[in-house]
Write a protein that binds this DNA or RNA. Structure first.
Lengths: 249, 249
DNA sequence: CAAGTTTTTGCGTTTTTGTGCAGGAATTTA
DNA sequence: TAAATTCCTGCACAAAAACGCAAAAACTTG
């Protein structure tokens, strides 16, 4: 098989499935993975596809590919995501906000998990769509470009009609006296109604945001049921939260 | 065997198989590979074939080799996108479906354009979000993973509440007697209500799909106002459509 | 037709290209 | 943190291309 032919085949596959794996291509075409990698490199130089670890993506779908390793303090968020994922059981309805911690959660979901996720966060939707067994429900409204999430009365109405099992909040600031706070008015409204519409609310936050404050209040500490950080459950900084009745993970 | 004869034979083989190898040609014609190479060089200078390492490919390789209904007809789609973009004026509300032609449209929007786009297509949302002056309104509902678009009663209800100025439909099949047709039930429902909710409906389609048929009907030809293809407006294939009262672009 | 000229072809030799492989670095996953 | 993938780099080797040259074939012209 000629090189050009091979590359044409690869492009065909990419445009067909929106993604390819070096390993399967190498088997299909019977050449070494090295050769595939070189082909992918050349094609990505020409802008015909986007090379990623393990394969390539179609350029039409992949522009907002959030390279996972550019996320701020990723290792901690990964730990948080794993703890959070363990709360989700098959068949649950889960509301999630936006934010990079939520994205990590989306990536940490075990492939066999069958659940329904409801969100207005576009990056989160993209992640959920990649999972084989997860249904995604989009909350519609106008998009706030800064937060890449749908916000507004429509979105809030829609959330109010929902009774979800769980709600995950990417949290920007939490302290005992002021509760959970944030800086974006629209996002705050959204999170408020998400908490109201869920049986159980879970706050995901990296430890550096504990005992910090933002201008707008979402809810009191008492309103959330679980607090997940990257720290061990018995870390002293978490003790006061535990004593005020929150489950720590 | 004469040189001219030989080259004619080579061309024949190229057009027959879309590819030839210098080594097999040299054996078939009983000349040295050097001679074959020289022939291939001359023919490639004349544009009759494309020379590659090891042999040559048919000049139509780029278009023909990959299956035509992938993003590979991109140049054509770019032409369509530019024509379509010229219809959108500042302040308009625009409904769009999904599909790769719509994505091209999203990329072709001039940066100064201030308009509001309404869609349930996740890839389209991503494109619109990249534009500085465009407001995006998301139609919420459950996501269909195959088409990456929100579908269902909620989405249709929402669309029915809208009065948009324009509606762009990525069209998979159109012919005079059957109108616009498609293969996905949910997408058909969605497109139907989009047409009803818009003052003016525009069908975007590459010429390949003109006079083709899919199982489910969206609307009659009379229901759309403008038909945009990559062809010049006076192309004979478009004439019957023009005569049935549609504006051609 | 015959001599001279041009074109074409084949054959070494040298370069370039394409491919696979080994080992170490980087990244992902458990 | 450890184990497993994937990536990158340099290298070796084979296949193909390019180049120069000389012989052969084809064409021109007196």
């Amino acid at each position: 098989m000629l090189k050009k032919e091979r590359q044409a085949y690869i492009l065909h596959q990419v445009n067909l499935h929106n993604k390819v794996l070096s390993s399967v291509l190498s088997q299909e075409i019977h050449v070494s993975e090295d050769t595939i990698r070189r082909d992918l490199y050349e094609l990505s130089e020409e802008g015909k596809l986007i090379k990623v670890h393990g394969g390539a993506l179609s350029p039409s779908f992949g522009q907002v590919y959030y390279s996972p390793n550019t996320t701020y303090s990723r290792p901690q968020k990964t730990i948080i995501a794993k703890k959070a994922a363990s709360l989700i059981k098959d068949g649950m309805f889960v509301l999630t906000s936006g934010g990079s911690t939520i994205l990590e959660l989306a990536r940490a979901l075990p492939p066999q998990l069958k659940a329904t996720f409801i969100t207005g966060s576009i990056p989160a939707i993209l992640e959920y769509m990649n999972h084989p067994n997860i249904d995604v429900i989009v909350i519609g409204d106008k998009i706030s470009k800064s937060s890449k999430i749908t916000t507004g009365g429509e979105a809030i109405n829609k959330i109010k009609q929902i009774r979800a099992d769980l709600c995950f909040l990417g949290t920007n600031a939490i302290d005992l006296t002021n509760g959970i706070t944030d800086s974006d008015w629209d996002v705050v409204q959204l999170k408020k109604s998400m908490i109201e519409s869920s049986q159980k609310s879970v706050s995901l936050t990296i430890s550096e945001k504990i005992n910090t404050l933002q201008p707008i209040k979402i809810c009191d500490v008492a309103n959330i049921d679980v607090l997940i950080t990257e720290l061990p459950v018995d870390d002293p900084i978490l003790k006061p939260y535990h004593e005020s009745g929150i489950e720590i993970m």
